[in-house]
Design a binder for these strands. Structure first.
Lengths: 256, 256
DNA sequence: TGTCATTGATTGATATCCAATCCTGTGGTT
DNA sequence: AACCACAGGATTGGATATCAATCAATGACA
């Protein structure tokens, strides 16, 4: 087993990408130490890990907060993500075997079924995972870790935005990228990856203030101790425009 | 001022990329705590930072060591570096203005002068820095940090290899990349970047055992306290085949 | 009302202590 | 002599208590 501080850093990371801890939320050492029943020192080590990962910012003598990236930084993160995925696409278009293409198609198919059956939460997770699977096929652990970090940061960014996304359209993008790559149309695939991310970023409005709806203790309670309690559940956010079952899929990439 | 653990992590990083702390070297908490005159906890926090950066590995209940990447990992690091720089090249070929091209050329020119005047150490540093300047021109801090981390890891790798490199040839590569990019021959430039890194990696022989010639105390002494002592000096390694003034430039990329 | 000082809270860091684990060296056994 | 088991030392991971420095908020006072 790894160190305790790593375990706690993992839980905090999870809570952040689940949007249970929102940007700006104070991560007090004493409070976290009580919640996890460890000493402040272990908590501090966890926070250092989170800060190195870009998910938290530590201000001297003020404490740690969930990172609140600027719009500029958001653009840079998506730029970097695009760059990485385009590069991986170029590698895969050369080197990926039939089994790899099959895995990608299978993943898209699973997401398509999730969408069809109305399981939006699962579809969302699978949509995220697609990019991870994509990079994993490059068989480069270093690249995987870099990419995973960028993905975590984009997930964090989603706490700051208000737009709904069109999962169907993003899903189609995934399928089309696979098609283009397998046919060797690398340039078009890379263009599509760029568009894919741009369509996401274009929906961003980041001036919004985010109010923590949950105290850290409430936010972290589901992750504690494993055995007891319910399994960790995804985000409990209320989005603007949400109206229960019939959700309007805003096509954020619409206008040229 | 940032935290003490960050400062110590920076010094350790410096010592590692200067090849004063070599892969496998034990980084004992008690020893470092004495050297830096801080508590063990601060040292531990520094080591966590180093481990997150890929420069150290922490083995539970065994302690921290300067990372000793496998050949596989070395290849992955150079692959990732290639991918990143190719991506940046693609961006720059579109977006870079005249001032940017001038800065790149000027940098190459400075390195050329260093080579001409026989200042191999400076030439080496400038050669490294070229890649950093290159990425900085992308104006993407996130990408810069990722790249900088990869560069640090490649520098660490150089502690593990025996080959001498042909700085002249690598220098020519830099100049040619600039030329190709400015003329819009992106594909050729990317090919050259790939070759550039492959030519480095091809000289790798990593089975070699590295014996720490310096104890951590000796290795870190130049960095302590700033005011006193000589300025931090580069690597004191003895390379195989070294024979004083007349050094043979082995063209490691020779055979196709 | 506006400014300044005090107070409280939190972080950064230290020292000391303890448990768990790993390494090693010793001793017994075959 | 070779090999295995075990005990002791050393080191790490972590807890607790404590102290100084700094920030924020409050309240006193002009």
């Amino acid at each position: 087993m790894s160190s305790r501080s790593q375990a706690i850093a993992d839980i905090l990371t999870r809570a952040i990408i689940d949007h249970r801890l929102v940007p700006g939320c104070k991560l007090g050492e004493r409070e976290l130490a009580e919640i996890f029943d460890v000493s402040r020192i272990v908590v501090r080590q966890s926070l250092i890990r989170l800060a190195d990962d870009g998910l938290a910012q530590i201000e001297r003598n003020r404490g740690a907060f969930v990172a609140r990236p600027s719009m500029q930084e958001a653009l840079e993160i998506y730029d970097a993500l695009t760059l990485v995925e385009q590069g991986v696409a170029a590698q895969l278009s050369d080197r990926l075997g039939p089994a790899g293409w099959a895995e990608l198609r299978q993943h898209v198919e699973r997401q398509r079924q999730a969408v069809a059956s109305g399981n939006d939460a699962l579809a969302d997770v699978l949509g995220q995972e697609f990019h991870t699977v994509f990079v994993r096929l490059s068989r480069n652990k270093v690249m995987q870790e870099i990419h995973a970090q960028l993905v975590r940061r984009t997930t964090l960014l989603r706490s700051l935005i208000t737009a709904d996304f069109d999962y169907c359209n993003l899903l189609d993008d995934h399928a089309r990228v696979i098609d283009l790559l397998e046919k060797g149309r690398l340039k078009q695939a890379m263009e599509l990856i760029d568009m894919h991310h741009r369509s996401v970023v274009r929906g961003y409005i980041m001036d919004r203030q985010v109010f923590p709806e949950l105290t850290p203790r409430e936010a972290l309670e589901p992750y504690l101790d494993g055995k007891s309690g319910e399994p960790p559940k995804p985000a409990p956010r209320k989005k603007a425009g949400e109206n229960g079952a019939a959700r309007a899929h805003a096509h954020v990439h619409a206008s040229k």
